[in-house]
Write a protein that binds this DNA or RNA. Structure first.
Lengths: 204, 204
DNA sequence: AAAAAGATACCGACCAGTCAGTTTTATGTC
DNA sequence: GACATAAAACTGACTGGTCGGTATCTTTTT
C-alpha cells in the first residue's frame, strides 16, 4: 500500500468532513428537514462540493449509513475477537451493548435510517446489502458460538434477542430526552443491563 | 348532555376524518414529507378545510398527538379498572402491552411524535402537558398498586420499566419491517412477553 | 341574513440540484 | 527546476418545482 497522493488525501478529508457534518445535521434535524447547505457549511465546504462526492442527498445519506454501519460492526467484532472463553465473550458483548448508552448519536441515526428505508422502498435493496454484510460478519464472529451451542426454540430466542438489542436501545435513547431523571445515563445503563441479562441468561 | 346540532356533527365528522387521514400520512411519510393536500384528499376534504379546523400543520400534528395519547391511556386504564387483585392487574397490563404488537400504527406514530418534540423545542411545553396528563392518570390507576407496595431500588426499577415499555415496543416494531421472519407477529409477541416478564417479575 | 364550513386558485419562501467559472493538484516536456 | 496543460476539487450564483399558508368565493347550517 503506497502513500496516498495529495489529491486522494484532499478527497478523503472532504468526504470525511461531509459525512461527519451530515451525521450531525441528519440527527438533529431529520433527513427531510436537513439542508445540504447546512451540512456543507458545517463541513467548511459549499454545496457544490457535496455534489462532486455524492450523487444526491439520498446518496449522501445512504453512504453515511453504509459507512457507519460498517464502523459499528467493526467495533463489535473487535471487542469480541479477543475473547477466548464463552463467559468472556458474553461479558464483552454485554459491555459493548450497555456501553453504547454513552453514544447519543448512533441510536437516533439508526432510527432515522430505518424510517427512511421504510418510506423509500426503492432503496430497500441497498439497505439490505448492508444489513446482510453486518449479519454475515456477526455470524463469522459467532463461529465461536458466544451464546452457546443452541438448538430449536433456544436458538430462535437467541437470534430474536440479538436483533432486538439495537432497536431497544434506540427506543430508550429517544425516550431519555423526555424522562431525563429516570432515564439518566445511570438509569439507561441499569435497564439495559437488566434487559440484556434477561435476553441472554448466563446459563442455559 | 343535549343532542349535538347538525353543524357540530359536521365539525366532528370532518375533524375525525382529518385526524385519521393525518395519522395515516404522517406515519407512512413522516412529518416533514407529509403533505397537507394529501391528508385533505385522503379525508375527502380540501386543504382549506384543514385550516378551518387547525391553525397550522404543526397544530394538526400536535392535536393528533394529544388525541391519540388520551385514547391510548384511556384504553390502558379501562383494561386495568376491572381488575380486583394484583395478579389480575399484572396480567391485564401484560396482555395490553403484548397485545399492542397488533397495532402497527401507534408505535411508529409515537416515534414520529418524539422525534418531532426533540427537534422542535418550542413545542416541548405542549408535549410535556400531555405526557404529564398521561402519567397522572396512570398514577391514579396505580393507586391499587398493581406492582406491589415497592420501595427504594425496586420502586425505581419499576418506574424505569414502565417508561421503557413503550419505546421498546416502538423500536421492535420498526425493526420488524427489516426482520419480518424473526420479528413476525409471533416473534414480536414472544420477545415482548420475555421482556415484560423480566422487567415485571411476578413476585418480588 | 348572517355565520360557519368548505373549495379553489394563488403566492412566496424554500431548497435540491445545476452550471459556468476559479483554484488546486497531477502529468507531462524541456 | 520551470513552464504548460489537463484533470479534479471547489465555489457561488442561479433555477425550477414544491408546498404551507392565504384570500376569495360558494355552499351549508342557524
Amino acid at each position: 500500500m503506497q502513500t496516498p497522493s495529495k489529491q486522494q488525501l484532499r478527497t478523503q478529508e472532504t468526504q470525511a468532513r461531509l459525512l461527519d457534518a451530515a451525521e450531525q445535521v441528519f440527527v438533529s434535524d431529520g433527513y427531510e428537514a436537513a439542508q445540504l447547505d447546512a451540512i456543507a457549511a458545517k463541513a467548511g465546504r459549499s454545496k457544490g462540493a457535496v455534489y462532486t462526492h455524492f450523487k444526491s442527498k439520498e446518496d449522501l445519506f445512504l453512504v453515511l449509513f453504509e459507512q457507519r454501519t460498517r464502523a459499528y460492526i467493526d467495533g463489535l467484532i473487535a471487542s469480541l475477537k479477543e475473547c477466548t472463553s464463552r463467559t468472556e465473550s458474553r461479558a464483552a458483548f454485554r459491555a459493548f451493548y450497555v456501553g453504547l448508552e454513552k453514544d447519543t448519536t448512533w441510536p437516533i441515526l439508526t432510527l432515522e435510517f430505518k424510517l427512511f428505508a421504510l418510506r423509500h422502498p426503492e432503496w430497500k435493496q441497498r439497505f439490505r446489502k448492508s444489513f446482510e454484510l453486518a449479519k454475515g460478519r456477526r455470524g463469522e464472529a459467532d463461529e465461536s458460538e458466544i451464546f452457546g451451542p443452541l438448538r430449536g426454540e433456544q436458538k430462535i430466542d437467541n437470534e430474536l434477542a440479538i436483533v432486538a438489542l439495537g432497536p431497544i436501545l434506540s427506543g430508550l435513547m429517544l425516550e431519555s430526552h423526555f424522562e431525563p431523571e429516570l432515564l439518566s445515563e445511570r438509569g439507561l445503563r441499569r435497564i439495559l443491563a437488566r434487559i440484556f441479562d434477561a435476553l441472554f441468561p448466563s446459563t442455559y
